[in-house]
Design a protein around this nucleic acid. Sequence first.
DNA 1: AGCCAGGACAAGT
DNA 2: ACTTGTCATGGC
Length: 266
Amino acid sequence: MRLEIKIDCLELKKTLFCGQCFRFTEREDGIFCGVVGKRYAELEQLADGVAVLNANEGDEVFWNEYFDSELDYSLLFEEFSTDETLRLATKEKGIRVLRQEPFETLISFIISQNNNIKRISGIIGRLCEEFGTKIGDGVYAFPTQEQLKGVTEADLSPLRAGFRAKYIVDAVNKVTSGEINLEGLFALSTPEAREELKKIKGVGNKVADCVLLFAFHKTECIPMDVWMKRVMSAYYPDGLPQNLVKYGGIAQQYLFDFARKNKLLV
DNA sequence: AGCCAGGACAAGT
DNA sequence: ACTTGTCATGGC
């Protein structure tokens, strides 16, 4: 069935391809196709929201949560516009920070390190085909912790993930053994949750902050990747203005996008 | 062809 | 505490 959801400030092309998720493609007819959790979804851009073309009964709650539709972005942009750089960076709106599943987000951003978005998507796609549940014609869900339990580096070789394979193994070991309880991180403070994540080999500040922002919605986390470091040194040598810190992670999405599109150097 | 990619880690100052 | 070389692979 077709399900229409009203959401402000949502442009699928920007939100799905800004580098926070890796499982969507845009079909030739402009429909965005991808996998979220156990669902294969076909999404259509509407003027004031999104239409889920193949929704099931009762999916509205799920999609509203995924798109974090309760967060009012107009208030954020008001705050952002007090800063000249952010005012420019948010001139074109449409990026929303999604609420993604923690395990998938953790593995995805371990794979993301020193990598490019195209290849990240490829590796994740092969991970899903190899270990995930088939949910449609050539469509595979992201593997669950249980499905990856006990994997070795050799098992992961078809992914061609390079040096990241051993990091994936360590992450799977730590979450399936219970050494790290991902769901439990919701109850922790941001610094505590970050330290938990960093116990995993291959998880440093940047990857941890991506997981905290994209899965645990810790909006004050600002992932410091190469692009964001360029933005900071060029525009915020003394750090972000204090009034922008609380939603700094969302501001970061726009600054990241801004920096890449303008090929910001230095 | 060669540089770089949504970095982390270990070894060296 | 900072700096640097290294780590696989492939996109551009």
